Simulated assay, not measured.
Amino acid sequence: MEGTNIFWHESRVCREDREQILGQRGVVLWFTGLSGSGKSTLANAVAGQLNAQGRLTYTLDGDNLRQGLNKDLGFSTAERKENIRRTGEVARLLVDAGLIVLAAFISPLRADRAQLRQLLGKDYVEIFVDCDLAVCEARDPKNLYQKARAGEIAEFTGISSPYERPENPELVVHTDQESLAECVSKVLRWLSATSERYVEQG
């Protein structure tokens, strides 16, 4: 039941005030791709480089959030949708605090990613971590593909559940063709060239 006596309270300190202190613009870098494509590895590597530059970041990882905030959710279509919705709301709070947020989620459905874009507006940057399914399956760091092929995991993305490739992402990195360092540089170059979202400190 939705509350009827709930009101939005404005803060005396606004997002612009926090961003001025940090010397950066808040933004959400949303890494989407198949399991094993390298989303978390890339997000963490980018975060490390940004922190080395004096940027304040926070990384949201799908597996990590499922151990806390989203531990009550399974992997049905409805629960995956709720997983992404909750994460989007957390990202919105963090970006309002002026942070550069790096979110690594399979997020396989275009409709869910479209909702994120609607929620976050210009703060949402979709990064498609493109990697051939065969390569992801060969890596299989968690043995998930093997379990899915054996029928031990139902509705596994890329095997028994679809992954809808992004149609208009802000950035595409090919982790089956480019090194991690090349992919990190690609993301950082994009950020540096987009002054509206990322401010270089002189």
Rank of each mutant, 00 (worst) to 15 (best):
A43Q: 06
G68K: 08
A43M: 10
R197S: 04
R113D: 05
I6Q: 15
P141H: 02
G36T: 06
L171I: 03
W30I: 02
A47M: 14
W8V: 14
A103V: 01
N83V: 09
L99E: 01
E178N: 05
G121A: 11
L34V: 02
F75C: 13
E178R: 07
F156D: 15
D132H: 10
N44I: 11
T194W: 02
P162C: 06
T59D: 10
L42K: 04
K147I: 09
T59V: 15
R80V: 03
Q201V: 10
A43S: 14
G68T: 10
K186C: 05
S195K: 11
A154F: 12
E182N: 00
W30K: 01
S160C: 12
N168M: 13
V135N: 02
K147S: 09
P166V: 03
V27R: 05
V187P: 06
A193T: 11
S185A: 13
V27N: 04
A150Y: 12
A150C: 09
V173T: 05
L180Q: 10
S35H: 13
N83D: 12
F31Y: 04
G88R: 02
K122V: 12
S161R: 15
D63C: 10
A104M: 06
A91Y: 01
S192Y: 11
E19V: 03
E182I: 01
G38A: 03
C14M: 13
R110V: 02
V172I: 10
D96P: 06
N143F: 08
Y124I: 14
L69G: 09
E2M: 13
C131K: 00
R25Q: 07
V129F: 00
A103M: 02
N64Y: 07
V46K: 08
M1Y: 13
G62H: 10
D130Y: 00
S107Q: 02
L56A: 04
T157P: 05
Q53G: 09
V199E: 08
R117W: 14
R117V: 13
R189L: 08
L144C: 15
L94R: 00
V184D: 03
T87A: 08
F75A: 12
T57Y: 00
R149S: 04
N5T: 15
D130W: 00
L180P: 05
F128Y: 11
D96W: 09
E164D: 07
A45L: 12
F105Q: 01
V90A: 05
I159H: 07
Y198H: 04
S40E: 08
G68I: 09
A43W: 05
E152T: 07
A150W: 11
R12A: 14
Y145G: 13
G62Y: 04
E137F: 00
V27T: 07
L109I: 12
D96F: 07
V95C: 08
T57W: 01
D61N: 11
A181D: 15
E182P: 01
Q24P: 04
L94T: 03
L93A: 11
L133W: 01
P166N: 03
L102T: 07
R18Q: 01
G3I: 14
A114P: 10
E178V: 02
L144R: 11
N44K: 13
L34W: 03
T77G: 08
V172L: 04
V187Y: 09
N143T: 07
Y58K: 00
G151T: 12
N5I: 15
A114G: 13
